[in-house]
């Protein structure tokens, strides 16, 4: 990937993020922040590659820490977002189920 192509990707991705979120109702702000928090958990892929190519003990230690943190970001982000969005059901679906107090 040449520098200029990377720059194009950066620019288009930035506009995409802006557009995707610009018409979001306030009620979804927290789940969406959580959802975007999950999406940057993709850092896991980078951490895997970094650790996968580490040689010295120092690199390996930091790489391990990176993978551990990144996995936490991805999994934790998914779990809490999923739990929050689980509650956003249509009125029809909601009326049939009993909520715990």
């Amino acid at each position: 990937m040449t520098g200029i192509v990377a720059l194009y990707i950066f620019m288009l991705a930035a506009f995409t993020g802006y557009e995707v979120i610009s018409r979001v109702p306030v009620i979804l702000h927290t789940p969406l922040m959580s959802g975007s928090n999950f999406v940057h958990g993709i850092v896991l892929v980078g951490a895997m590659v970094a650790l996968g190519s580490a040689h010295t003990p120092l690199e390996k230690t930091i790489g391990c820490l990176g993978v551990l943190l990144a996995a936490g970001n991805a999994v934790g982000g998914y779990v809490v977002t999923e739990r929050m969005l689980e509650m956003f059901k249509s009125s029809g679906a909601r009326s049939t189920q009993k909520r715990k107090p």
Partner: peptide
Amino acid sequence: GFEGFVLNNAAMIIAGTVVGSAGTLL
């Protein structure tokens, strides 16, 4: 996104940048 450039990883670049701009707007 920046580390995605370093590792030449398109998924990280796109996901990171999308979150960066969406988060800034939010």
